[in-house]
Design a protein around this nucleic acid. Structure first.
Lengths: 148, 148
DNA sequence: TGCCAATCGGAACGATTCGATCCGATTTGA
DNA sequence: TCAAATCGGATCGAATCGTTCCGATTGGCA
């Protein structure tokens, strides 16, 4: 139950890109890596994935770089997670590709995983990149504490 | 963004236990492993964790076994996930133990992860073991509502 | 039109975590 | 007191994740 570090870095990179003129200014990977502190090779690998997913628009050649292909308010955290980690699937049962579950036949809880998957994905889809890139967290002042 | 296989198995085991007289009948790990198809050593390791977390009540000696310590309606999926995988933390920033993030200082999105964490945890806390153990999914047709 | 600079894309290596298996310690009933 | 059955911790192998490096492609500029 944890996001991978690459997803974390992807959010950091996209958040930094969104702060530059709303993500419309073209920015190369090197400067963003320096600004955020993400290692350069990792940042390059991430922008490749994000460009393949259609979240950012990349331009090659001299003076190239990338920029957000959509406004930050229309990019959700679910989009970023799916771009980096692939489709959101809580268990192997959810996507039809994997059928290597030993239970599979008499599994009584398998029909319920779909609802769980939708619930988690809905929680992630409710958070936009605009919220993540904001300076002052709107809901962080009320309670920042995590329950153990 | 995926639950570990152990968590999946734990839900299957607890769901099977809940179906035996509402989890009040004492059941040993061997019979549950045969019933669900989970490998026996894995099932034994899981019940140890679940017992340490206080979700199940174990009894040693001849004729022993375990049973649910609470009604299935009061055990949420968040409890099971936390029992098996530890505290729910989307990133390393959330729990105070890990401070090995290279960014850490000028990370602008760090204050927002707390809200993301609460959103996901709330989605998992809204699903009870009673729902997972039911034969027909009761809330699958309607909209699974989560707060952003 | 040719050259150079900067970028994307894929492939290989190492580290960490996860998952399965085994054996010893503890406890209860006869 | 004996024996059976259980929990608990420790060990080993495998898979995935994360990082790094190098070649191929593209566009600007002289």
């Amino acid at each position: 139950m944890r996001l991978s570090s690459l997803t974390d870095y992807a959010v950091v990179l996209l958040g930094a890109a969104a702060r530059h003129c709303g993500g419309m200014a073209r920015q190369n990977a090197t400067s963003l890596a320096e600004e955020t502190g993400v290692p350069l090779p990792t940042a390059q690998k991430l922008v490749s994935k994000l460009a393949a997913a259609g979240l950012i628009d990349s331009a090659r050649g001299t003076g190239g770089g990338f920029r957000l292909s959509r406004p930050p308010a229309s990019i959700t955290l679910a989009d970023i997670v799916e771009a980096v980690e692939g489709p959101i699937a809580m268990t192997s049962c959810v996507d039809a590709a994997n059928h290597d579950c030993a239970i599979e036949g008499n599994c009584r809880v398998k029909p319920h995983w779909g609802a769980v998957n939708r619930a988690v994905r809905g929680a992630l889809a409710g958070i936009t990149l605009a919220q993540l890139a904001a300076d002052a967290p709107p809901a962080a002042q009320q309670q920042m504490k995590v329950e153990a």
